[in-house]
């Protein structure tokens, strides 16, 4: 992207008029190497946010949560768990609603399954090559 465009985007950025996409473009630009000296400090700002995005909780957290939610024996019952699965499915589909769905290549599950099978075999064969190069 050209410098003039970036200058314009930056101006919009400080005025809080940029879209999320434009902000991504800015971030992308400042990730590059040919940032002029006068914008050096802006580069630091954007790369700071990028770093922040990499912050993750400690490894034990997930386990601790799973420990608590793991079902207790007394709750075990087909009816209850079936209900929970349905509710979960509902919750998830609501949660996912605003994300664009993957467009299916096949309408027929049988065909799709055949494609999956093929893909798995190709991947497997290539993995095999890496694991046993002499064969």
């Amino acid at each position: 992207m050209e410098r003039g465009q970036i200058a314009q985007l930056l101006e919009k950025y400080w005025q809080v008029e940029t879209t999320v996409e434009e902000e991504k473009m800015l971030e992308e630009y400042f990730r590059g190497t040919d940032v002029p000296l006068e914008w050096e400090s802006y580069r630091d700002i954007f790369s700071f946010y990028e770093r922040e995005r990499g912050v993750k909780p400690g490894e034990g957290l997930e386990e601790r949560i799973m420990e608590v939610v793991r079902p207790r024996p007394r709750l075990r019952g087909a009816w209850w768990s079936a209900a929970a699965v349905i509710v979960l499915g509902l919750g998830l589909s609501l949660y996912q609603r605003d994300k664009p769905a993957m467009k299916d290549t096949y309408d027929d599950p049988q065909q799709a399954l055949a494609a999956v099978q093929k893909a798995l075999l190709i991947a497997s064969r290539n993995m095999h090559k890496g694991l046993h190069p002499l064969k």
């Binding site: 939610v69 929970a84 949660y95």
Partner: peptide
């Protein structure tokens, strides 16, 4: 986070009513 996730789990019956889990 732990507290919130566990609370979320304990209220899973209500998930369907929420617009956005996140």
């Amino acid at each position: 986070v732990q507290e919130v996730m566990i609370r979320l789990w304990s209220r899973r019956e209500e998930w369907g009513q929420w617009q956005s889990l996140e």
